[in-house]
Design a protein around this nucleic acid. Structure first.
Lengths: 209, 209
DNA sequence: CGACCTGTTGATTCTGCTCAATCAACGTGG
DNA sequence: CCACGTTGATTGAGCAGAATCAACAGGTCG
């Protein structure tokens, strides 16, 4: 899968929902397009308006590690150094708003709060990877998605099996088998390939331990 | 292993090495004592002066996940919410300086920088857990420790095998076997149980991929 | 000295990776 | 319209690696 960094879709002007001020336009990134690359100079912060973004890094042996999925309302782009340690890519066509050059007249209190959110998200994923078995990690992943999407019955999977695998630290075949396990045990139902219905939320949550 | 939260050792008054101002005293925490617990109200930030601190969380099924080891110069205590999501414990007897109540007249720019450091550390550990095999994770762990301790031949392991296991997401038996593997391949030598000599740094780094 | 704790090693089981085949969905071109 | 190629997903068989269970060694402290 090659990232086509050429495609940059149209931008839309609008009001920033939080500040209420006239704000930078929304940029639409098509599926599998790069927002910034590993090694790029640190730039502004980004707010996801809709769609999904993945943060990833590539190891020396060519494996890809996805360190986060960001959805509407999430802010990304924080870096401790002068260059990005990870790249950011649109998963499914995402609308991104540039918050402001990092040099920023943004109130630093709000900046700090968003950075702490990023920290909390990252630590949450550390806990997710702490799950011993592949089935448990998949259950925790679905449960997390369900909570973030605010629907306790239907979960949408905007990303491919391959992405889920690189996020959960397993192969895409194992992702498939883990879903099958949850299906066979009556915990979920696969409406389509990307839409999952939670049949037994209690059991799903119980598996996350 | 029970945490004895009763023991709080003496405090020492001194100058803050960064600000140069008269600063809060250093508190000595004995081995295996708690600094703050999961669920405690969010408080001040802490600076490790010497020794080692572990940040950990306990899952519903009783397993422990260590999300970070902090050493001299590291700051911890950041939280997005009003309560601590993880607990902090001294590993080996650590000197901790309270930086300032989080309400803080601390310049927020410096705060943000420290928060970004925490974020970078956490993401670094995510990459470490991305290593497929136990041997690779152990190699990456030793390499990381070596860099943080600033000595490219001798690495000190202040924590027990159990702690390493909960940090790397494996059992302590596997930790033992991974060390044995590195030893048998002439990559390291175990001077004592807690002091490791790197014999082939190049090979060690090569394994981290 | 004996009790206990930590660490190492061995034997067995089981989970997940690898390799491989198959299938479904989709787009293209004849 | 259908044959064909492509891509993503599922499933199977065999194998490697880590967990588990268990025994034992070494050190420390009472």
């Amino acid at each position: 899968m090659q990232i086509q960094s050429t495609f940059r879709a149209e931008t839309i002007r609008g009001l920033h929902p939080l500040t209420g001020r006239q704000s930078p336009a929304i940029t639409l990134y098509g599926a599998d397009t790069m927002i910034y690359a590993e090694g790029d100079a640190t730039g502004p912060l980004y707010l996801v308006e809709f769609g999904t973004v993945r943060i990833c890094r590539v190891t020396a042996d060519g494996r890809r590690q996805i360190t986060g999925f960001l959805m509407a309302g999430d802010v990304f782009g924080f870096e401790a150094g002068t260059v990005h340690a990870s790249s950011a890519e649109s998963v499914d066509g995402a609308g991104i708003r540039v918050l402001r050059p990092a040099s920023g007249d943004q109130p630093t209190g709000a900046l700090l709060q968003m950075a702490l959110q990023s920290l909390a998200r990252t630590q949450h994923q550390l806990m997710l990877l702490g799950c011993r078995s592949a089935n448990m990690r998949m259950a925790a992943f679905l449960f997390d998605l369900s909570e973030r999407q605010g629907d306790d019955r239907l979960v949408h999977l905007p990303m491919q099996r391959n992405d889920i695998a690189d996020y959960l630290g397993m192969t895409f075949e194992t992702v498939s088998r883990a879903l099958r396990y949850l299906k066979d045990h009556g915990i979920v139902r696969l409406r389509t390939i990307a839409d999952i219905e939670i049949l037994n939320r209690h059991a799903l949550e119980g598996m996350c331990e």
